[in-house]
């Protein structure tokens, strides 16, 4: 396997449901060992992109190659084998509510390995230590704060030491402290475990601060891509509006409507 070829290679991706086009000729490369962020306004199908990479959705057209294998064309068995090498952090954490923290992290290990209990215990404690929640292992998910739940879910996602980690909106709805914790964890995990990381987010500052490479999506197309510095300096007007969070610009503040003054003067028929 070529080490410098991209780990995930998306070509000519078309996807949509019930008549609505979500992706239209999208090409994306995710480089090995790097943190790649995919950004865009709400509703551009960023989460759907992760589901497509994970094989939970099928594209209308196009190829999605992960480590050389075309995901949409895989048989169920091979898809599940590939997924063992993928970790995904869901926006809600998606912890199993009837298991406590320890059993949640142990879940993938118990499902996929025949390791003795004592080894599972050690592995789980290592992962929980990595996210700083070794002391919370007896808690049930309902007793966790949003940030803690996301960290437990992170520990669970890395339980099988995946080669690729996908984060779905990891920073949304977090207070500044847990945001900082997550930023640090994502960076550390990527560097220490040699993983490849994909982040889907619209939190510009946090994402840009750790990403090695950015893709900007809008209206089903890749608008721009490059390193964060390059995009900030050389990006188009739209890119600058998005990255700096300006209220008005190429994306208008107003939803298309007839002229305001005219409409006020008009009497309803």
């Amino acid at each position: 396997m070529l080490q410098d070829s991209p780990l995930v290679e998306i070509r000519g991706l078309h996807f949509g449901y019930s008549g609505r086009m979500i992706f239209d000729e999208v090409d994306i490369d995710i480089q090995r060992g790097k943190i790649t962020a995919i950004m865009g306004p709400s509703g551009t199908g960023k989460t759907t992109l992760l589901r497509l990479i994970g094989g939970q959705e099928r594209p209308v057209r196009g190829t999605i190659r992960v480590d050389g294998a075309n995901v949409p064309g895989l048989s169920r068995k091979h898809l599940y084998q590939l997924r063992k090498k993928m970790g995904m952090l869901f926006q809600s954490g998606a912890l199993l509510t009837d298991l406590n923290v320890f059993d949640n992290v142990a879940f993938p290990l118990r499902e996929h390995t025949d390791l003795p209990d004592i080894m599972i215990r050690d592995l789980v404690l290592i992962k929980l230590q990595a996210v700083g929640l070794r002391g919370a292992r007896e808690l049930m998910p309902s007793a966790l704060s949003g940030g803690m739940a996301r960290r437990v879910a992170l520990a669970r996602a890395i339980a099988l030491d995946p080669m690729i980690m996908m984060y779905d909106e990891p920073f949304s709805g977090q207070d500044p402290i847990s945001m900082g914790v997550l930023v640090k964890l994502i960076r550390e995990l990527n560097d220490a475990l040699g993983m490849t990381t994909i982040i889907v987010s619209h939190d510009v500052n946090e994402t840009a601060s750790i990403a090695d490479y950015l893709y900007l999506l809008s209206e089903g197309k890749v608008v721009e891509h490059g390193t964060p510095e390059r995009l900030r300096q050389a990006g188009s007007e739209w890119t600058r509006q998005f990255l700096e969070g300006l209220p008005d610009g190429p994306v208008p503040f107003h939803y298309p409507a007839p002229d305001f003054v005219e409409e006020l003067l008009q009497f309803p028929a």
Partner: peptide, 22 residues
């Protein structure tokens, strides 16, 4: 239904655990 609404089934699929079987 709740497991589906809270993405638990989806997360299981991504952990390579088939929710239909599990």
């Amino acid at each position: 239904g709740l497991m589906k609404a809270t993405e638990q089934l989806s997360s299981m699929e991504m952990m390579a655990v088939d929710p239909l079987r599990r």
